[in-house]
Design a protein around this nucleic acid. Structure first.
Lengths: 112, 112
DNA sequence: ATATTATATATCGACCATCTATATATGTCA
DNA sequence: TGACATATATAGATGGTCGATATATAATAT
């Protein structure tokens, strides 16, 4: 099933930062990793990712360096910053609160 | 914590339809019920709700009737339609898939 | 050789849902 | 009478995602 873009809004940044908290990655790799990890539920578009990475960098949440890959291609590798880790922690709390509240409403009526 | 509007996007319609699947409600009542059920996590704005209700009605997911409340005030009561129930079921599946995928990514790295 | 596909980054305009601000009107309470 | 809660409504601003498009190289197929 294709996930409505409305649902994606707001969580994409958190997901990207979470990946970068695990290890340095380049853009294309993030798209593939998200696709794989979510069992193809997510298919983040390049047109969404690259502007997002630029805004995360501008905000100081990630830093980047260009480097040549083994195959000779140029890639732009992103890393999360300390500031980014703090922001990520906040976003994870927010996600937890939000998804919990949605489920509360959906379960609700019963034991309120 | 105030929930980022990006996160809300896409799930508000589902939440409203879920409330209406329980019982007929008027707009203001929906806002209060969501606030209460979510332990004040959600505070849906009137400027979001009323246009949303109109579009849900236009799409045939809800129907409305105007009636005088006990206190003499005019209220617009909304009910979910059969079509709306079908749409709601789809949206709940989508939410389940989406939130599951987000958690998979956040848990990920470990057991992939 | 040549065409196609995958890799890799990037920008732009369109779309859509949310918010704030504003408007109107009535009921309640001080 | 004034303030606040109730109740619905619309308009404009904001912001995130998408599709389309562009560029360039590597790998694969014909």
């Amino acid at each position: 099933m294709k996930i409505d873009k409305g649902l994606m809004a707001g969580s994409t940044g958190m997901l990207i930062l979470h990946l970068l908290a695990e290890k340095e990655m380049y853009g294309y790799e993030m798209i593939e990793t998200l696709e794989k990890r979510s069992d193809s539920t997510f298919s983040l578009k390049a047109g969404t990712l690259y502007p997002l990475l630029h805004s995360l960098e501008k905000a100081g949440y990630v830093s980047s360096r260009e480097a040549e890959a083994e195959n000779g291609r140029m890639r732009k590798y992103y890393s999360i910053t300390d500031k980014g880790n703090g922001f990520l922690a906040d976003k994870k709390n927010e996600w937890s609160l939000f998804s919990g509240a949605v489920n509360k409403v959906l379960d609700g009526g019963a034991a309120v």
